[in-house]
């Protein structure tokens, strides 16, 4: 009987040890195809000789930024220069961090940029808060803080990942195989940290800057342009741009009004 018990215990211990041999790899799973998984195939893209530019305007009173309670991490409480939420950032009547992109099909093959896009964790915030990237383009994720962060990509089309960066200066690199919009990033250690990416198969995308200004360089043609913000419903407009021309296109997001009766 004791022998049987010892056998059961040994098997249990082996199972437990098997569990302990698990995941110590904190790297991001590499993109399976090295990029361009669902990149458009077609004629070589014509040069971007036109542009569409404008302002993302904000109508109404923007919600005041909420102060973030960072007491859960003394490092963040001490080192965050601006401990407020950055979801609705309005300057000069313009809304920042709006992802503006061509949402109509783009039937052309674009070369994958080799320039690395970087997202940094600094002062317990993501910088930038919103960014765009192309399928297959390198993304560098960096921790500039002397505290631990985890980068959790809530991808739905691409593989989801969650990696830890416990040490200042740590860098992980990845690429995305497929277009995905939006692709949220979150730190589960610091709940207030979030960032949004737009992954595209074409280069016709950008993020609105201070004052809500944006500009996209593109080839002449007719496009559906979408403006996406994390807190408001997306807006779409169609515009035609001519060779060498610069089309103006503004979007207006409105502050949430009182609830309808």
């Amino acid at each position: 009987m004791q022998k049987r018990f010892l056998i059961v215990c040994s098997v249990s211990l082996l199972l437990a040890l098997a569990g302990c041999g698990g995941n110590t790899d904190t790297g991001i799973p590499p993109a399976s195809t090295g990029g361009a998984g669902n990149a458009p195939t077609g004629p070589v893209a014509p040069p971007a000789t036109a542009s569409v530019a404008g302002k993302i305007m904000f109508e109404g009173t923007p919600p005041p930024p909420t102060k973030i309670q960072m007491a859960a991490d003394p490092y963040c409480a001490k080192n965050s220069k601006d401990p407020v939420t950055e979801d609705v950032k309005v300057t000069d009547g313009g809304l920042e961090n709006v992802i503006v992109y061509v949402s109509s099909p783009v039937n052309a093959a674009f070369p994958t940029p080799t320039q690395t896009v970087e997202i940094d964790q600094s002062g317990c915030h993501y910088a930038p808060h919103a960014f765009t990237i192309m399928v297959g383009q390198p993304l560098k994720i960096k921790n500039s803080d002397e505290t631990l962060h985890n980068i959790h990509a809530f991808a739905e089309t691409n593989p989801q990942f969650n990696v830890g960066q416990p040490v200042k200066g740590m860098v992980n690199e990845t690429k995305f195989d497929k277009a995905e919009m939006p692709l949220p990033f979150k730190c589960d250690v610091h709940k207030w940290m979030s960032s949004f990416a737009g992954v595209f198969t074409h280069p016709y995308h950008t993020v609105s800057k201070a004052g809500g200004a944006y500009e996209i360089k593109l080839a002449p043609g007719t496009y559906e342009i979408t403006a996406w913000h994390e807190k408001f419903p997306p807006q779409k407009q169609t515009i035609e741009v001519k060779d060498g021309g610069k089309a103006d296109l503004n979007f207006t997001f409105k502050a949430a009004g009182p609830a309808a009766d």
Partner: peptide, 16 residues
Amino acid sequence: STESGLSVPDWPTTYG
């Protein structure tokens, strides 16, 4: 409740 389930991304180690 605090949505902390993935705040330690590795297992059985903790951040290595």
